[in-house]
């Protein structure tokens, strides 16, 4: 894990400006809403917060699905995998590179969302609950997107990742348990945390399926050639 964190740190630093810009988005949105000076309608605010939850998922899916292709194209992957780093450790580094910006984005979402909710005269509990649920769905989305990047070039992998995340959410709307239903629960959450929590099973299923998908990605990546002239 130490090696994965070392590599992830390099990859994050490599794209620091892009990630910093994305991290600032929730804060920027908060400032714009407050600076508009008009009375903040809680319904409008809730719609904006739900949108930000979807942005968070899109961010993690695109980041996770494009990293491997980019690293192969730049040949930096050869620099790392020529050292005592296993394919699994490398894949874990890519997963971390997608998850860390997600967590920072959601931290910004939780901070500004809570402040705006209080500013609009509502409770902040629901915002924190949403952030927690999106974190779990994001962990799953990162693993699923990483799996696509093993087979497809970066552009196609990100399209496949976003499509598959979208389809799972659609399945969740039809009651299929797992990350999709968890995301639908997020989009139904208001400013108040539901009294009766029914998401426990979906949380466990999402984390377990993320682990299984990651293990499958590792198994496959371990058996494939690197494409050092990719794309």
């Amino acid at each position: 894990m130490k090696k994965s964190m070392l590599i992830a740190r390099q990859l994050l630093w490599q794209n620091r400006w892009l990630f910093a810009l994305l991290m600032l988005w929730p804060y920027l949105m908060g400032v714009l809403l407050v600076a508009s000076g008009s009375q903040l309608d809680p319904e409008d605010l809730l719609a904006i917060l739900h949108q930000e939850c979807i942005y968070a998922l899109a961010l993690v899916a695109v980041t996770a699905s494009t990293q491997l292709g980019n690293e192969q194209r730049s040949r930096r992957i050869a620099t790392v995998l020529a050292e005592a780093v296993s394919r699994g450790e490398y894949l874990a580094a890519l997963w971390l590179t997608a998850v860390v910006p997600l967590l920072l984005f959601l931290a910004g979402f939780a901070i500004t969302g809570s402040a705006l909710a209080v500013y609009a005269g509502s409770s902040a509990g629901g915002v924190l609950f949403m952030a927690l649920l999106v974190t779990v769905v994001g962990l799953w989305a990162a693993a699923a997107s990483l799996l696509w990047s093993i087979f497809l070039p970066a552009v196609f992998a990100s399209i496949a990742a976003i499509t598959s995340v979208g389809l799972v959410i659609l399945a969740g709307d039809y009651g299929v348990p797992g990350p999709g239903r968890l995301m639908m629960e997020t989009l139904r959450t208001g400013f108040v945390v539901p009294r009766r929590l029914t998401v426990g099973g979906d949380v466990i299923l999402s984390i377990a399926s993320a682990a299984v998908i990651f293990a499958a990605a590792w198994w496959l990546f371990d058996r494939r050639d690197l494409n050092l002239t990719a794309e």
Partner: peptide, 10 residues
Amino acid sequence: YLPDAPAFFA
């Protein structure tokens, strides 16, 4: 290992 065209991180 030294590749023909070494790549580096920023």
